[in-house]
Design a protein around this nucleic acid. Structure first.
Lengths: 332, 332
DNA sequence: ATGAAAGCGCTAACAA
DNA sequence: TTGTTAGCGCTTTCAT
């Protein structure tokens, strides 16, 4: 059997209370007793049972991360970043793939609450608003990541998507492009990026053309099809802004199929700056978010809520920056 | 306060024992009592506390997944597949990124044991053999995934890497290639794939050329450099087998830089059949493992160990198959 | 069919 | 400085 605190107490000839104090470094313990207890702990390879301590109102040091799926490489990066900063704060991450399914979202949340996780990080999108409201009502620590829910008073840590849309579009405008297509998804972030695109056009005194704004599913094939529709327009855009790298890469494929040269005949900008940018040819210009900092920040926020019951509500938006690569050039 | 089993018992005018039996569907409970209890549970939105039940010797329904990192897209796929089948079995996955660091491996294992996870799935590589032996000694359920440790009596679920190496090489041989380079990593799987490569050459009556077998780090830049060394050989190979897609894609980049046309002047085969194969141009021929089936299998194995204490040791190897795409063609 | 009660391993208030 | 003890929420044995 695994040794318990009782075994340690017995062998060290002290009470379990003393052992507990030694383990948790609180209360006053004489140096002698402490050493003796520590020695026994060492000898028996004693490991405190986190469950039992959580039962007494302590934390489980587990945070559930709800994320749509791992097919989009940016989600893998989110996960990596959040898990890494979690380690720094002493929290483990329980992964919950939602597949954009509100049912699954609800099941995960229910299950994770039964497992007494200390909080929830919800990444990228979440359909089940009812569930979110319930968490809020029950004062469960929740923070949204790379996602906002303006209608709810709920903390979030995101990149400034609107700003990102502006940056991407201004980059293309500066290269002389006037007819700029955009491919978006039906998500909050995507819409913000489109809003940035419109602002940038307006600032440049260009009237937005509705037919240049297209919506696509999140699979690469759908992106390719949508990019194709943009390229098949009677008056073809000279540049495309994909609201994420998948959408941009899909457009690049559509261009290749049609023999449209990138960047000579078509400039393309993506968003997320995933590794795809560097493996595709030509390398993709993309708007980068500071994923590492975002992960760090979201853990800070949720840990403050968990450990200090911090109630301050905040929407943190960090700045994106554009990584210029080979898919964008002056309009010819 | 969240309702406990006592609240339910009180309101339903039964004992906690009865409530417990209703929740767990065991013992004999009259239909009336059951209904009454269920109704109260419903009304209070009662959620049993998994911690407390785990304290009484039940499971936590959590499995720790140790995985090197998320940068390799195949790991993200592993994770996705394992998490999905975990859901099917009612187990959650706690993610532990090891970064190939034996210290981190050890820290995670210690921590996860304190958190009383029911078992461990260790994916792809694991350096800390001492830790592994300790788990085995303590009879903690562990299964290796996409990784084997021949010197230890430990269960594993993998693809048949040796066979995969044969398949990849035979594909190239069938296309008329004789001088085939290979880029490997210093891992068990990679070595198996190289072994398959050697076997296939031998079967074809070709003497392996030592200088055509190169080892690379796991980053794309390192792969590109190594691919470059292969291409800069006085007598350049007409085909390269990359022991994973990163290595293959790195070679493709090296080829592009040197103006070596793929597949006309160089055929390339990868391994893992990640999404990279479909986004790179030309699309990469790659050996695919049945990731979904592997994930399913590994959960089956570990859940049998956890729930039925199954002791049967087994190494399960599933069959790979090649997905032929555009990077391979007849030697010209 | 139902309930009383012990106890899982730990923490913390209180006593000594 | 150290120990006693009550309980966290649940399961399970043994009575009834």
């Amino acid at each position: 059997m695994k040794p318990t605190i009782y075994d340690i107490a017995r062998l060290a000839k002290v009470s379990t209370a003393t052992v507990s104090k030694v383990i948790n470094n609180n209360g006053k313990i004489s140096i002698n007793t402490r050493q003796r207890v520590l020695k026994i702990i060492e000898e028996l390879h004693y490991q405190p049972n986190v469950l039992a301590s959580a039962m007494k109102g302590k934390l489980t040091y587990q945070i559930a991360l709800l994320i749509p799926d791992m097919d989009n490489p940016i989600y893998a990066q989110y996960l990596k970043s959040i898990e890494a900063s979690g380690q720094g704060f002493g929290f483990s991450i329980v992964l919950c793939s939602t597949d954009n399914d509100p049912e699954k979202e609800a099941k995960h949340i229910t299950l994770m609450r039964q497992k007494q996780v200390d909080g929830f990080i919800i990444a990228s999108r979440f359909k089940n608003t009812r569930m979110l409201e319930e968490l809020l009502k029950d004062e469960v620590p929740v923070v949204l990541f790379a996602y906002e829910k303006p209608e709810l008073l709920i903390d979030s840590v995101t990149v400034d998507d609107y700003q990102g849309g502006i940056i991407a579009t201004e980059h293309l405008l500066a290269l002389g492009h006037r007819r700029i297509g955009v491919i978006a998804e039906e998500t909050f972030s995507s819409n913000e990026r489109v809003r940035g695109y419109l602002t940038a056009l307006q600032n440049a005194g260009i009237d937005p053309v509705e037919s240049l704004i297209m919506y696509s599913g999140h699979k690469i094939d759908e992106a390719e099809a949508t990019g194709g529709r943009l390229l098949d327009l009677a008056e073809r855009p000279s540049a495309i802004f994909g609201c994420n790298d998948i959408l941009a890469v899909g457009s690049m494929r559509a261009a290749r199929i049609r023999g449209v040269a990138i960047p000579e005949e078509l400039s393309v900008v993506g968003f997320d700056n995933t590794v795809w940018c560097k493996i595709i040819h030509p390398e993709l210009t993309s708007v980068a978010m500071p994923v590492g900092d975002l992960g760090q920040k979201v853990m800070e926020v949720i840990v403050n809520k968990i450990e200090r019951g911090q109630k301050i509500n905040q929407r943190i938006r960090m700045f994106p920056e554009i990584k210029v690569r080979a898919t964008t050039s002056n309009k010819q």
